[in-house]
């Protein structure tokens, strides 16, 4: 396909898309993070069940059970879920697109307290209670 945009990476990073652009890019990162985690998790669960793969399963388990990975994956899952709900609502009821800016504010008001509390819990657990 002739998809030529003539925009380099640095130029793309300097794009000032503000709020909506930030949610778009975080939605992508979050989605990719979840795909990575779920794929690892299914593989690890499968391997742990097999006699020939138990040690490989335990090794993969250790990756995503690490508290640093938990901080990352919980950000991915929570942001993707909340932002995804906004996208679903605004896409299925397009008259509401007028309130996209307010919807994004609302989204951060929901996201930040939940993520903040979870972050405290995860870090306390990670540093040994």
């Amino acid at each position: 396909m002739g998809l030529k945009r003539n925009v380099g990476l640095m130029e793309g990073l300097r794009y000032q898309g503000k709020g909506p652009m930030l949610t778009y890019i975080l939605h992508r990162i979050g989605g990719l993070g979840i795909v990575l985690f779920v794929a690892l998790h299914i593989l690890a669960s499968f391997l742990s069940n097999q006699a020939w793969g138990t040690s490989a399963g335990i090794f993969i388990n250790a990756i995503y059970e690490h508290w640093l990975f938990q901080i990352f994956i919980f950000f991915c899952a929570l942001f993707h879920a909340i932002n995804g709900l906004r996208i679903v609502i605004l896409d299925l009821w397009p008259v509401l697109i007028e309130y996209q800016r307010e919807a994004i504010w609302l989204e951060w008001f929901v996201f930040l307290p939940i993520y903040g509390i979870a972050l405290i819990v995860i870090i306390r657990g990670g540093l040994g209670g």
Binding site: G31, I34, V35, V38
Partner: peptide
């Protein structure tokens, strides 16, 4: 639902950065 949603999303992201038809 999660698998189809997630892998179609992955494909969507990849196709944004790939323009050759055979690679797609």
């Amino acid at each position: 639902f999660a698998g189809a949603h997630g892998l179609h999303g992955l494909l969507n992201v990849l196709e944004d950065y790939i323009s050759r038809t055979w690679v797609r």
